[in-house]
Design a protein around this nucleic acid. Sequence first.
DNA 1: CCTTTAAGTTGTACTATACAACCAGACCTC
DNA 2: GAGGTCTGGTTGTATAGTACAACTTAAAGG
Lengths: 144, 144
Amino acid sequence: MPDRDASVETIQRELTAFARRARSAAARMHPELSLVSFTLLAHLEDRGGCRATDLAAHYLLDKSTVSRQIAALERLDLVERRPAPEDQRAQVLHLTPRGAGTLAQVTANRRAAFRERLADWDEADLDRFAGYLLRYNASAGPLD
Amino acid sequence: MPDRDASVETIQRELTAFARRARSAAARMHPELSLVSFTLLAHLEDRGGCRATDLAAHYLLDKSTVSRQIAALERLDLVERRPAPEDQRAQVLHLTPRGAGTLAQVTANRRAAFRERLADWDEADLDRFAGYLLRYNASAGPLD
DNA sequence: CCTTTAAGTTGTACTATACAACCAGACCTC
DNA sequence: GAGGTCTGGTTGTATAGTACAACTTAAAGG
């Protein structure tokens, strides 16, 4: 028989355990792209390009952090800067072809890893789990 | 109608978003104890003391990392070292009273935050969500 | 115009982390 | 029981990610 407090306790414990491992797990899965870099590239792809400031606001990162992350991604030829037509101060960031390729590769790896990990879940459970995660994250505010 | 791939995709996306925010969220929730320190203290409480090597093995951290974390926690008077009775090389780490108090405080804060966040979930959903997280984490291997 | 605001970069500092070198105590084998 | 090896732990060094503050340049608004 379910007990509210026990369930909350378990959720807390398991999410904490997950959080602790997540970055190193990501690093193992795709050494060439940290979790943050991956996220930034994915966002650029999703939006079809945006400004550094937008990334900073969206992910609650300092603009200096984003500036350096982008500089690193540019050095790797994964991102390029284009002048913003209406604001000479700003740059619009876009994936390069290489960036798109790397992102696709990493995305495919991640997808495969998750699929395998969830291979023996039945469809109804997957659907409910996805729903719970959405609901949980939605209550976090506009952090993502 | 649930679609397997769509659910996996959602799970992946939402877990990634969660992982990205987790550390800074923890830092906001309890600035005095990082997620890792919190975990180490909790483990010490749970086990009633253990060696640094055990912590490193359990959390897949390098022993040097644990050594420095423990040194910091000792400086804060949250952890103390006791000679290991049967091995002069080793030290058994224990919470100090202050460490136990801080851990209790942080645990209470976290619990309250999770409770509030999950306040409008009904008991059956909490129970299922907890079960799914357990199942998901269990498939990760003995990382925790 | 001149002041204020916004976009980005750079200097500096801190934390978490790993790997390698090392030390000291324990253990094993002959 | 002496020497070689293994184990627990610390320290040196390096890297990544992050923040805050100072600065530059351009836009916006009185």
